[in-house]
Design a binder for these strands. Structure first.
Length: 106
DNA sequence: TGGTTGACGACAT
DNA sequence: CATGTCGCCAACC
C-alpha cells in the first residue's frame, strides 16, 4: 500500500460501529494528525470494502454526493442514522468516540 | 521538478 | 451568519 497511515485510517474506519459516524477531522486527529482531513478522504477513497459511508464532514453532512449522489445518506439511514431537514446528522448523538469510547454506555 | 487540487477544518473578516 | 484564506498531506498534470 502507499503508506502505513493509509492502513491506519482503514483500520480505524473499519472500527466504526454500525449506526455510528465519524468526521474527517476527527479521524485525522485520531491518527495523530499525520494526515489532514483531506488526506483522510484520499485514504478512504483509495480503499475498498470499507464502511466509508460512516465518515462525514465536521458539519455532519455528506461530502461524497458528487461521487455517489444520495448513496451515503441512504446507507446511513439503513443503519438507523437519522438526518435532519438540512440533511445533517446530529453529531452529538451519532458521533463515534473512538475504539476506547465504547467503554461508556450509549 | 513544480504547481494545483481535493470525500476537510479552523480562524479571520 | 456568509465568505474568504491558510494549513495540511498525497495525488495528478
Amino acid at each position: 500500500m502507499a503508506s502505513p497511515v493509509f492502513a491506519e485510517v482503514w483500520k480505524l474506519v473499519r472500527t466504526i460501529p454500525r449506526g455510528r459516524v465519524a468526521t474527517y477531522g476527527q479521524l485525522s486527529q485520531m491518527i495523530g494528525r499525520r494526515l489532514t482531513p483531506v488526506g483522510i478522504g484520499w485514504a478512504i477513497r483509495a480503499s475498498e470494502g470499507l464502511p466509508w459511508h460512516r465518515v462525514i464532514n465536521a458539519r455532519g453532512g455528506i461530502s461524497t454526493d458528487n461521487d455517489h449522489p444520495g448513496l451515503q445518506r441512504a446507507l446511513l439511514e439503513a443503519e438507523g442514522v437519522r438526518f435532519d431537514r438540512d440533511g445533517l446528522v446530529d453529531l452529538e448523538t451519532y458521533r463515534w468516540k473512538g475504539p476506547r469510547g465504547a467503554t461508556r454506555g450509549a
